[in-house]
């Protein structure tokens, strides 16, 4: 268990970074793309202009960092929600593989998406 003991500060750092980024950045994305634009309150950006926006290297890095760290934020928080809320501490190793493994898989997929965009 020594390895796990050593890694908690690492996971906590990712959790904190992801929590901060998602707190600052996600609400505006949801409000615009999910609500204001579909309801016609704001004019929808055209496909081409949106595409060129995402093609910009800064946007790619932005999306990758935001998505990956948000996933690690989920992984760490949900790990403890499962421990505490459902009293599943005895399944610790499975939960860790599921949560951090899931976040890692999402990170790899996002990397492929933004590199091949």
């Amino acid at each position: 268990m020594a390895a796990k003991k050593h890694n908690d500060p690492f996971w906590w750092t990712l959790f904190g970074a992801g929590g901060t980024l998602s707190a600052f950045l996600l609400p505006v994305h949801v409000a615009l793309i999910g609500i204001a634009i579909p309801l016609g309150w704001l004019e929808a950006p055209g496909y081409e202009s949106l595409r060129s926006l995402v093609e910009h290297p800064i946007t790619r890095i932005y999306l990758f960092v935001l998505i990956s760290l948000s996933l690690f934020h989920w992984a760490h928080r949900f790990r403890y929600t499962l421990y505490d809320g459902l009293m599943l501490k005895h399944l610790e190793s499975y939960i860790m593989v599921f949560c951090y493994g899931g976040a890692l898989a999402g990170t790899i997929i996002t990397a492929i998406l933004v590199i091949t965009f």
Binding site: F10, W12, T13
Partner: peptide, 13 residues
């Protein structure tokens, strides 16, 4: 303490 522990961890790595 968590923040201190995290800084220490990254320093040690």
């Amino acid at each position: 303490y968590k923040a201190t522990g995290a800084v220490e961890w990254w320093q040690s790595v």
